[in-house]
Amino acid sequence: MTETLPRLGRARAALVRPWLLLAPALAVLAVLLLWPLVRVFLFSLQDYGLREITTGEPNWIGTANYAEILASPELWTVVLPNTVGFAVLSVAGTVAFGTGVAVLLASLGTFWRTVTSSAIMAAWAMPAVTGTYVWVWIFDADRGVFNDVLMGLGLLDDPTNWFTNRWTFYAIVLLNVIHHGFPFVAVTVLAGLLGVPKEMLEAAEMDGAGSFRRFFSIVVPQLRQVFAVVIILSTIWDFKVFAQVYLMPGGAGSNRSVLNLGVWSYVESFGQNRYGFGSAIAVLLTLLLLVVTAVYVRTVLAEEER
């Protein structure tokens, strides 16, 4: 920065000012996100029930909650596979589908692009709670349109309850999450695509590179930043699915085979009054997310500092 005003005053201001500007935001983050994170860890080391919450008295039990969680077969056979498997599938699905849509949009004329992106906006705008109920209604066993159509086409003899089977249950959640999540990816990637210099594309074309190769060898490297951001954010959002599972039939705990870490933590806490145990589950979920995303974060910040 070129200094044109008296050096000393500006230098001091430049030292203090960023902290003044940051102060309100940091205060909010500290009180409402960081301190609660510390607390959830403290709770996880206690047998923390309703009584402890009301009285505020601690009830330390060391790592017993963690020991119980890690020893529970439910964690390894159901909860963890559901959480991780679903996150991987939904991130991959959302990013792949969103990118595909972006490529398609980039090749459309103005009119169709406006129409299609408006439709995408409509999908994006649907709140998770309403979206979930709409999908539940579409797949309703007795009166949902999905079963009706399948039976009308003769593909299905009797109505099937798609919510009771672990795989079909999560297939519906996946559909719901991709439907809600792909617009962000599509819009972001599209913006990036339009920024790729077309000379580069044309040069590649002249070399005789096919469109797939062209895409992966020229466009993707150009958009590394874009993909990094899109993948991080999708991972963050998709690991956190709660309402989309909790509100489905059987999703609130009666169908054990569809539990994920989030719902498990919630039902143990607020259903069983085992806030300590629930907190321990939440801590594990947080650690898992941190590990998964740490790699991406480093990539992004490394680019940043360059």
């Binding site: 009771t164 089977n165 059987g250 705990g253 009666s254 039902v267 259903g271 069983q272």
Partner: peptide
């Protein structure tokens, strides 16, 4: 009350009714 909140009986019923 905790048994009810855990949905123990509902879990049993649903796994039988769905054929699991």
């Amino acid at each position: 009350g905790a048994v009810q909140a855990k949905l123990t009986t509902s879990t049993m019923m649903q796994s039988i009714l769905s054929g699991d």
